[in-house]
Design a binder for these strands. Structure first.
Lengths: 112, 112
DNA sequence: TGCTAATACCTAGACACACAAGGGGTGGAG
DNA sequence: CTCCACCCCTTGTGTGTCTAGGTATTAGCA
């Protein structure tokens, strides 16, 4: 997988995962791996900075917990974050349509 | 349109356009605009460096022409370039599938 | 006991690439 | 004579991903 393509989508993927319930860094990477059929392996060097960026932008809020002697920093979507996710999903569809248009692909996106 | 998403796709778009016959910088931008329904406006600051990059990688070859007193630098796909385009199209589909997987979307035929 | 892997967080620096903003120039329309 | 469409190019900036390192706990295994 060409990592360059990931540019700009990482934040959306994080928002999406967290939108289904609070999650923490390590778990987010695992979720992304499984939900992308093993295609995306979100690296820590991109994950944590992105998480902090999203929190600074108030799209996520966080809290620490303790679990089996391991500390976890959970993130949850804010109201603003939920709106931002909707916007980014729309942007993604637009973008994919554009690319597919240039490529001459007739594919569309359908809700499951 | 979030320009960050374009990262990594610009070269593919150029290869795709040129694959349908030799073209030159300015024309490529116009083709991309129309084929993407006005969504992508490839900027010169990304276009020309990308063109030169692709030529250096031997995916494109070029030649100058004169047209109505204006010089044009035409680019055409090399054999290597054609293979590279096929590979990148495949990569794109993989990538889009991955993102759609995480988003809970499915690529398919648009229902009407 | 010591080693390794998995779980869990983080950051500094390298690197790639799209873009803004500048440069050059021609031809035609008002 | 000014402006726009056409046509090429480069420098510098910003942003975002990754590599490679750091810290720490727990569990499994030799």
């Amino acid at each position: 997988m060409d990592t360059k393509l990931l540019n700009g989508t990482v934040e959306m993927l994080i928002l999406e995962v967290v939108s289904q319930g609070p999650s923490y860094g390590y778990e987010i990477t695992q979720t992304v791996i499984s939900r992308s059929d093993g295609r995306f392996e979100l690296k820590e060097g991109s994950l944590y900075p992105a998480l902090h960026r999203l929190e600074r932008q108030m799209l996520l809020s966080s809290y620490w917990t303790e679990h089996d002697g391991r500390r976890r920093k959970y993130y949850k979507l804010t109201t603003t974050g939920r709106k931002a996710l909707a916007a980014r999903r729309k942007e993604w569809r637009e973008f994919a349509s554009g690319v597919n248009g240039v490529l001459g692909l007739e594919l569309g996106v359908v809700s499951r």
